[in-house]
Design a protein around this nucleic acid. Structure first.
Lengths: 314, 314
DNA sequence: ATGAAAGCGCTAACAT
DNA sequence: ATGTTAGCGCTTTCAT
């Protein structure tokens, strides 16, 4: 009756509806799930629910799920493998149709186990090392290439790259992309590229790194930063030191966060299609746990603004 | 056995554990819930999962829930009352222990109905108009007072307030706070306060508003902005127009977002205790649906930086 | 068109 | 210390 009201006489239907209102009846979802064996819910475990990268992704996921009347449970592992496992277990126990995970470790054995038991698994922001596990990632090598290419196109022949540690795959990949592009342009990375590892991936880290460089007497003409906060630190330092951006030094960031376009010198930045990333991940899980695994690699784009060129578009 | 392994002989325990691994058994959460009648999960419906205000709140919530082995389901209503209702229904059907809602409408009748049926309800970022519904909010009147008081203390006698529409309660409240403080200082709001409603609550809105004012020949000495993005637009304009901040004009924002401290002129801003807000809301729900309702009002704080005073702390 | 009954997997209570 | 059983609320199937 609740599921096919049309199979029942209008009179009876009316009386049942009345009783429902009367008793303020709410269908028991647990019983329904138990019976159905499945549940129209997807679980997502991200590294940090407060980072725009992940929340924008979550928007993309939820948008897609809404269309199919699925719900999303979001949990934050805070980069802790134990928490990640705990939430995965919880999701699995509740019989979610699938889980999306930004893995906190390289080891994805526990995810393979989940997969084997019949729950869909999609890796987020990380290419899968296993053919049976789907993944949705963004090409960081390409991101590095885009930034380097742009700076080379602007006439620079030497790039300072304020990067994070190579233990973070994204950082290693972006470095690889930069090197590739320099080599393609006939430059020698040994001289044309200066990589500095920032102490922290924020504005302070950027400021400290670029200040150290300036004090050593090295005034770069082009700086590529591993994220927009680091770039913010560089822009701030340049202003303090009366170095003109982009006339004296071009700056490129990464992530294209909301404020990048709003700075007094709008920041050129590599944008990752976070929204699409989430939407695609949702699609993969909605195909059901038995659909063949797919490995999707999205391409980042470069958003050119005033920080890197005297002639920004528009 | 699963719930009290100590009640069983070690030998038997070993064999059961072996069987569990063997068959890769995962306990069925739905059945468990059905049996238990309750579920250690809290549902949260926020207006926009991509806004820092809500995600920082979510961190506070989850931190608290983790301690008690509860899980959090986050859903984004995107300010749509229908979506809000849909997610609430879903949460209720699944028998969550309680729901947290940033209501999309003034009408909270549907929330009262949820409450009557025995599910805990906490209003987020909105004082409750009903004694039976708990709420956790931040005092926006006080936020306005803090900003105004600071500017008055700095010697200003006239404040330009770039505000949002008063249909948004937060905006109306902050206005009220500013007026209060001016009156308390013996000033006449009719002359000491200029309120401009920005076209949009972002940097463009701030820039357009302040530019309009400057072009009308009015050069303010103190500007209070309804959020940090609007303030960013003002700072940007001041730089373009070669108006010194804070020497010629003091600027105060609201929210204290991550980049506020990182700007070349670090921004003074009213900070809301989002993390604590979430934690407290979690506590209220963890008390169980039968605990008496509480109405918690948090106080914002002013973070003074270089944009509003020649002598910022430290 | 409506009613009746079985069973999903678990836990708590009771029996051995 | 271990085994057995009833029943949570739903949906599906089968009988009326």
């Amino acid at each position: 009756m609740l599921n096919r009201p049309d199979r029942v006489l209008p009179g009876t239907r009316g009386r049942v509806q009345a009783a429902i209102s009367e008793l303020s009846f709410v269908r028991n979802g647990s019983a329904r799930q138990l019976r159905a064996g499945t549940i129209t819910t997807i679980g997502a475990v991200v590294l940090d629910i407060a980072k725009p990268f992940f929340t924008n992704m979550a928007r993309g996921i939820q948008e897609r799920l809404d269309q199919r009347d699925f719900t999303l449970m979001v949990a934050s592992s805070d980069d802790d493998p134990d928490r990640e496992q705990r939430y995965l277990r919880l999701f699995e126990e509740h019989g979610v149709q699938g889980v999306m995970v930004v893995p906190a470790t390289d080891d994805i054995e526990h995810l393979l186990a989940v997969r084997r038991r019949g729950t869909g698994v999609v890796l987020l922001d990380r290419p899968s090392s296993d053919p049976s596990i789907s993944s949705v990632a963004v090409d960081d090598v390409r991101g590095g290439e885009l930034a380097a290419r742009h700076l080379l196109d602007e006439g620079h022949t030497r790039i300072v790259f304020l990067n994070g540690p190579h233990t973070i795959r994204q950082c290693a990949d972006r470095y690889e992309g930069v090197v590739k592009e320099l080599v393609a342009a006939g430059l020698d990375p040994a001289t044309a590229l200066v990589e500095i590892t920032v102490s922290s991936l924020n504005a302070e880290g950027g400021e400290a790194a670029i200040r150290g460089l300036l004090e050593s007497g090295d005034r770069p003409t082009a700086v590529f930063c591993v994220n927009d906060l680091v770039a913010l630190g560089v822009l701030r330092t340049m202003r303090t030191e009366n170095i003109a951006v982009p006339a004296d030094v071009a700056v490129v960031g990464y992530d294209d966060v909301a404020f990048a376009a709003e700075l007094s010198t709008p920041l050129t930045s590599v944008r990752q299609p976070t929204h699409e990333l989430g939407a695609r991940a949702a699609d993969l899980l909605l195909n059901g746990p038995d659909a063949p695994a797919e490995h999707v690699m999205f391409q980042p784009t470069l958003v050119v603004r005033a920080s890197s060129t005297p002639t920004p578009p528009q």
